[in-house]
């Protein structure tokens, strides 16, 4: 029974969009996503509900097909992704002494907690996050349904907190369809 629960948790990121209450995101209007971080959406997105999981998610074709997720202002002692029903002490948490490698590994372990498989990160590199120094990395994994996913992430550690944005989509077709758009969004980041 417990493993069914794990499956449900793992599916939450994608299944959240099954409910109603989407909010339209205008393509050209800058949006503040939290922690004084704003982006220009570039295309029209829908902000999807995420019951039980922290952060904000935008999607163009549905969260099972593409998901741009924002985790702004993750404070020390907080997990990267908070999951309803999962004891926080069992999640790995952000610490201010983390270096970019640690943050990337933190995301990996959080994805592992969600039941994703074959999680691999690559191309960790410095990158501007608005006007501040940040870093980027790529990630691939399989969902519990066996779907091969690709992702790209940008993050910055500012004022003792972590800002993380990650885009993920099935590697076949959907990732490539939106990767250029997401690149432009990453370039549009303003952080103050």
């Amino acid at each position: 029974m417990k493993s069914v629960r794990l499956f449900v948790l793992g599916a939450t990121l994608f299944a959240a969009g099954c409910a109603a209450n989407y909010t339209a995101i205008d393509a050209a209007k800058p949006v503040t996503i939290g922690d004084n971080v704003s982006v220009i959406p570039q295309i029209a997105w829908a902000q999807a509900p995420r019951p039980g999981v922290s952060g904000t998610v935008w999607t163009a074709d549905g969260v099972a097909l593409d998901a741009l997720m924002f985790f702004p202002g993750v404070a020390p002692g907080q997990p990267l992704i908070q999951i309803s029903g999962v004891d926080q002490k069992d999640l790995h948490v952000y610490r201010t002494d983390m270096v970019p490698d640690d943050v990337m590994e933190l995301l990996t372990s959080n994805f592992g907690k969600l039941g994703y498989q074959q999680i691999r990160t690559s191309n960790l590199r410095p990158a501007p996050f608005g006007q501040t120094q940040g870093f980027r990395f790529d990630i691939t994994f399989s969902t519990q349904e066996g779907l091969a996913m690709k992702g790209m992430a940008i993050a910055a550690q500012r004022g003792g907190k972590l800002d993380l944005i990650i885009f993920m989509a099935p590697g076949e077709y959907y990732f490539g369809r939106y990767s250029d758009t997401v690149e432009r969004i990453f370039s549009s980041i303003q952080a103050s």
Partner: peptide, 13 residues
């Protein structure tokens, strides 16, 4: 036609 883990999670029950 899905992968392994979700199937077995269901079968678990």
């Amino acid at each position: 036609g899905v992968g392994a883990l979700a199937t077995f999670a269901m079968m678990d029950s």
